[in-house]
């Protein structure tokens, strides 16, 4: 359940931001969690609800963008979409795809007041 740690990190980042340019609360928070980031979105939402109360994030709406996984297939010389790390290339069936995207965990933007 590292989703709990992720939510605590999110809170730290937002609090640091609030210290830099003062705002009272966050009403909307946008995250980008790639399909290959190893994060369970439902668990992340659950943990967010546990972390947010009585903080600057209390009541914030969570908007999670989930970019698909992308990988390079060397035999095909193609970039392919990947829903998980254990699948083969949908074109040639080769394994050992090199993940090139969709493993990010980022805070993108927020609406504050």
């Amino acid at each position: 359940m590292h989703e709990m740690s992720l939510c605590e990190s999110i809170l730290q980042i937002v609090e640091a931001e609030a210290a830099r340019e003062p705002f009272m609360r966050v009403t909307w928070l946008q995250l980008e969690i790639g399909a290959l980031a190893g994060v369970e979105i439902d668990a992340l939402r659950f943990c967010f609800e546990a972390v947010a109360p009585n903080t600057i994030l209390a009541g914030a709406e969570l908007d999670i963008v989930e970019p698909p996984g992308e990988a390079r297939c060397v035999p095909c010389d193609k970039t392919v979409l990947l829903t998980d790390r254990y699948s083969c290339c949908p074109h040639c069936g080769a394994y050992g795809l090199q993940v090139t995207g969709g493993d990010q965990m980022r805070i993108k933007a927020m609406e504050v007041e």
């Binding site: 980022r106 805070i107 993108k108």
Partner: peptide
């Protein structure tokens, strides 16, 4: 996304772009 549901109106609401790794 849902951001569009938040009409800024006359409130003090503002968008902050952070772009930080969690």
């Amino acid at each position: 996304g849902v951001a569009r549901a938040h009409a800024p109106g006359l409130s003090q609401a503002r968008m902050v772009k952070i772009e930080q790794d969690i």
